[in-house]
Design a protein around this nucleic acid. Structure first.
Length: 594
RNA sequence: GCGGGUGUAGCUCAAUGGUAGAGCGCUAGUCUUCCAAACUAGUUACGAGGGUUCGAGUCCCUUCACCCGCUCCA
């Protein structure tokens, strides 16, 4: 639970973000709109850096991952196949007495006697309330307690001395219509579909309904065949995509953490089913220890690939300045997993408002491609020459064993999806025979991260207050955002020591111009030098370059005395300065910000 | 959506139903040889809409947003 102190910290971060132009409320001049946020100048740079680092790490720097940029609106059948149309809606009920909210499907089943009432009358004023109500009592409980609860209900509707009207009793078995805590009747389940609906084309009828994507991942599955055929990639390989996604959240909360429009960085990494790995390499490697398993090997099954990606993703977060101590891994328990998932790890960040998820890395079996194969009628499997050759060379009993295991897995999936026993059996047999011929539907490991929550994590992690007492004894607290140079919105600020000395100003301007093509640089000559440093600290700029008199007159003291054309570099986190030649400035900066 | 709380300048906070103010910030200028210096001038607000009242930042209603809880997830 969030302590008051932590709320104060969130308020400070929120206020800084607005003051410095990281994050603004969307549509603020019209009163704002719930669950939508804009990035200001510094926020836009920060976000761009984060996305570029992810894209570079997850695709460009890897031989085995390619990119995709799909549309936000796709064929609505995609969301039926993915399950979002059905399962993305959570029917909710409210307790009529206490207003507490329940997920309709998670209420425990109860049995007993339901006491129904048609309404109630105020014996003092004669006022009548006609509104049906009911209370469930466990068998054997005295009816008086039901009447007491009902009286409370009608009292809330403005009656003083309640006389209940039209009591009837009915036996109830396994009902989810009553509050397990007090027996009060609940409101009828109200469905919430979290997908934003829209209409494609001019007519806006039910037939034109489409949805804004609630995740970017499904496009990767839908385009799997095209990407596979055009990218010259072989399984195992991955497809990465970044982009906006939309969820009509019941309650957006915690600043930008849960927004209705947000951005995801998702990657589907397609791997062979374990049976295929075993056929080719004789045995599937088992995880030896916790931690990074090293370079990918041909004998890796889903477990090692999953572990590999968990570690790779944590390495990424560490590389952009989130220390491992600020992160947590949460391995979902078997009973928490979605029915198709074999494992799921959440990478959590310790936010000021609680430890919350940044990214989920799920081993999703072959569920998604199988679903799209079933629903679209298009084959999603791939052919693997190496597998066919290897399978043919296996001893017959090994062949049978692998086919049986693949058959069992396919049968389980098909049965779960409601395919009739006869059809499922035949289809699973076909799949098992296909495996022997080198065909299979790839399995997938899905690291799925939220950009906006990562931005928030970076801001929270970078936020530092420094209290300093000056020579006059006046103490002042200022904010330093200790961003990793790789993500910092402004990499370097170029400052003339004094504004009114033309040679300093011109030189600073020239240095700034020479840097801006390579990185986000900033030029500032207004105010005292200390004030400008402080401004940059608040923006999280890691380096300030200052042009001073020694730039022209030569270094005064020390081993380099007399050397000209140098500048000072001032470090954000400790205020220390070093002096380097202007000719070396660009390479010096580049190695630190890339 | 329900319950509780909060809305005054970019930020932090004032103003008994009677002329909306301060500090910081920001902009311009003077000055200034390294950590929010000084001086001068300027800048900007009652979340929105109704109502009560001679008069509303203040009282009432509606609405919007934010924070906390229920709920949910990237």
């Amino acid at each position: 639970m969030a302590e008051p102190k932590e709320n104060v910290l969130m308020e400070k971060i929120t206020s800084l973000c607005k003051r410095r132009g990281f994050i603004f409320q969307s549509s603020e001049i019209y009163g704002g709109i719930q669950g939508f946020w804009d990035y200001g100048p510094l926020g836009a740079e920060l976000k761009r850096n984060v996305k570029e680092l992810w894209w570079s790490t997850m695709t460009r720097m890897r031989d085995d991952v390619v990119g995709l940029e799909a549309t936000i609106i796709m064929h609505p059948a995609i969301w039926r196949a993915s399950g979002h149309v059905d399962t993305f809606s959570d029917p909710m009920c409210d307790c009529l007495l206490t207003k507490k909210r329940f997920r309709a499907d998670q209420i425990e089943f109860q049995s007993g006697n339901a006491y129904h009432y048609a309404g109630a009358k105020d014996t003092a004023t004669g006022k009548e309330v006609v509104e049906p109500y009911a209370v469930l009592l466990a068998a054997g409980k005295p009816p008086e307690s039901a009447r007491k609860t009902a009286a409370q209900f009608y009292a809330q509707r403005g009656l003083q001395t309640v006389e209940l009207i039209g009591e009837t009793v009915a036996k109830v078995e396994n009902s989810q219509r009553f509050n397990p805590e007090n027996g009060s009747l609940l409101t009828p389940p109200v469905p919430f579909n979290l997908m934003f609906k829209t209409y494609v084309g001019p007519t806006a009828t039910e037939a034109d309904v489409a949805y804004l994507r609630p995740e970017t991942a499904q496009a990767i599955f839908a385009q799997f065949k095209n990407v596979h055929e055009t990218s010259r990639q072989k399984v195992p390989f991955g497809v990465a995509q970044m982009g906006k996604a939309f969820r009509n959240e019941v309650t957006p909360r915690n600043y930008t953490f849960r927004s209705r429009e947000f951005e995801q960085m998702e990657r589907e990494f397609f791997i062979k089913p374990d049976e295929a790995v075993e056929a080719v390499t004789a045995a599937v490697a088992t995880p030896a220890a916790k931690g990074h398993p090293g370079e990918p090997q041909p004998n890796w099954g889903w477990q090692l690939w999953h572990q590999y990606w968990v570690e790779e993703r944590i390495k990424f977060y560490e590389g952009i300045g989130l220390p491992r101590t600020t992160l947590e891994e949460y391995w979902q328990k078997p009973e928490e997993l979605a029915h198709y998932a074999r494992a799921c790890v959440d990478i959590l960040f310790k936010f000021p408002f609680g430890t919350q998820e940044l990214e989920g890395i799920a081993a999703r079996s072959d569920f998604d491609l199988s679903q799209h194969e079933r629903c679209s009628g298009k084959a999603m499997g791939i052919f693997d020459e190496e597998l066919r050759t290897a399978f043919g060379k296996l001893p017959p009993q090994k062949q049978t064993e692998l086919k049986d295991r693949y058959y069992a897995a396919r049968l389980k999936y098909l049965t779960k999806m409601g395919v009739s026993a006869a059809e499922a059996g035949a289809a699973a047999q076909e799949d098992a025979d296909g495996l022997a011929k080198g065909q299979y539907i790839p399995h997938v490991i899905e690291p799925s991260a939220g950009v906006d929550r990562l931005i928030l994590a970076l801001l929270a992690n970078a936020f530092t207050e420094v209290t300093e007492t000056d020579a006059k004894g006046k103490s002042e607290t200022r904010v330093v955002l200790r961003f990793h140079p790789r993500v910092a919105p402004i990499k370097v600020a170029v400052l003339p020591l004094l504004k009114n000395k033309p040679e300093l100003a011109a030189k600073a301007r020239a240095i700034f111009e020479s840097l801006r093509g390579h990185m986000m640089a900033f030029h500032d000559e207004a105010g005292s030098i200390g004030r400008r440093y402080a401004r940059q600290d608040e923006a999280g700029t890691p380096f300030c370059v200052t042009v001073d008199f020694e730039t022209f007159e030569g270094i005064k003291d020390g081993p380099q005395a007399g050397v000209k054309d140098t500048v000072t570099i001032r470090h954000r986190d400790d205020g220390k300065q070093e002096r380097i030649a202007t000719s070396e400035l660009l390479p010096w900066l580049l190695v630190r910000v890339k």
